[in-house]
Amino acid sequence: MSAQAEERGIEAGEEWGAAETPLTFQRPVPRRLVHRASMAEVFVTGAVPTGEGRFLVGAQWPRDHALYHPDQHRLSDPLLFAETIRQALVYLAHRYYAVPLSYRFIGGDLDFDIARPELLRVGGAPVSVVLDAAGTWTRQHLSQRYDMRLDVVLTVDGERCGRGSLSVLAVDERRYGLLRRGRTSPVPPGAFGRADASRPAPGGIDPAVVGRLRTKDVVLEPGVGDGAWRMNFDLDHAILFDHPTDHLPLMALLEGFRQIGHLEMRGGTSSPDGCHHALLGASVECLSFGELDEATDLFVRERVRGPVPGSRRLVVEAVQAGRPIAGAVMTWGLTEGADTART
């Protein structure tokens, strides 16, 4: 394989835009094409072009996962959908649009809605999903940057059950350095994670109250005031920090927002028998880089009733040194347990 082909992520014998075999969900795509270090964290299994800027993207979600595990009623973790959208955009960018592997991807806006969560219930086999994806890819030749947006419809066994979108900016290393103003050195695991005695303990939050199974997956500690929390992330976390990075990843921020939602739902209205609250959608806006060496405070700015009975919307914000770095609007709704779900 030539150095140029390697830089662009081309497999031996492949050409850009070459037709792939039909979606079979037999194996994940190469991990470097979705910016993952661990093979276990690759969910996308391939893509098939269906028209100008349109693709069917296959993915397989595990029956169980250390962080993105099913809930107590066996519903797939909604953040699997968010992560699959991210991986799909990155994969298509490298595989079909010749975006070099050395380019840095900067998250913009992410949103997703799950209309029929019961279709994502985990059974005796991994959940195979398809994203009907439409992409907009603009290359600015003078600045060597790519502006990209991917809109997807989520289907399972041919049935539509959700939608989502993601926009990113991709730039070369020099321009990334200008944007980061010299703060481009990846922070290695263990640099100032929870193992460092100089950082506070996680705050004694029971993992169950934030929808997690393990103490190491709790990313919150109490803040000051009503609806105030602080992120206490661990750079040794094998999933949220799959590889060294110089800023707070979008999916780590989203995990913090989601955990706040679990806390809010526990203190909200009671659920009817056989039902529970689940995250059904989120719209996240990234405003600036989140620095790893600055405190990240999370605030619940608004609590309102959702569009259907039993649903609630939460407006949350992430702040560093008094400046907002991201915000999100989350929708939580009632879903039926496995024993009461209609067939």
Results as ranks from 00 to 15, higher is better:
M1T: 11
M1V: 13
S2C: 14
A5I: 03
E6P: 01
G9D: 08
A12S: 12
E14T: 05
T21H: 08
L23F: 10
V29S: 05
V29F: 00
P30A: 13
V34I: 10
R36C: 09
S38Y: 12
A40Q: 14
E41P: 10
V42S: 12
T45L: 01
V48N: 00
T50C: 09
G51K: 09
E52M: 13
G53N: 12
G58K: 07
Q60P: 00
W61Y: 00
D64I: 04
H65V: 08
H65I: 09
L67W: 09
H73Y: 08
R74M: 14
D77P: 00
L80Q: 13
F81R: 01
I85L: 12
R86C: 03
A88L: 06
Y91W: 11
A93R: 07
A93E: 15
H94T: 04
V99I: 14
P100Y: 07
I114M: 14
L119G: 10
L120C: 14
R121H: 02
G124Q: 00
V127M: 09
V130I: 09
A133F: 07
W137N: 10
T138V: 12
Q140K: 06
Q140W: 11
Q140D: 14
S143W: 08
Y146A: 10
V153F: 04
G158R: 08
E159Q: 15
C161T: 13
L166M: 13
L169N: 08
L169H: 06
L169E: 05
A170K: 03
V171N: 02
E173M: 00
Y176P: 00
P186N: 12
G190A: 10
G190S: 12
D196H: 07
S198W: 00
P207Y: 13
R212H: 12
R212Y: 09
K216Y: 08
V218T: 11
L220I: 10
G225K: 08
D226F: 00
G227M: 00
N232P: 05
N232V: 11
D234R: 06
D236N: 11
A238G: 14
L240T: 05
F241L: 06
P244W: 08
T245E: 09
T245L: 15
A252K: 04
L253Y: 02
L254E: 08
R266Y: 04
R266A: 11
G267M: 02
G268V: 04
S271R: 13
A278H: 03
A278Q: 10
A278M: 14
E285M: 04
L287G: 06
L292E: 14
D293W: 04
D293T: 11
D293A: 15
V300Y: 11
E302W: 05
G306C: 06
P307S: 09
V308C: 04
G310Y: 07
S311Q: 03
R312N: 07
A321L: 05
R323G: 01
R323Y: 02
A328W: 01
A328E: 09
M330V: 06
L334I: 01
T335G: 08
D339R: 14
T340L: 10
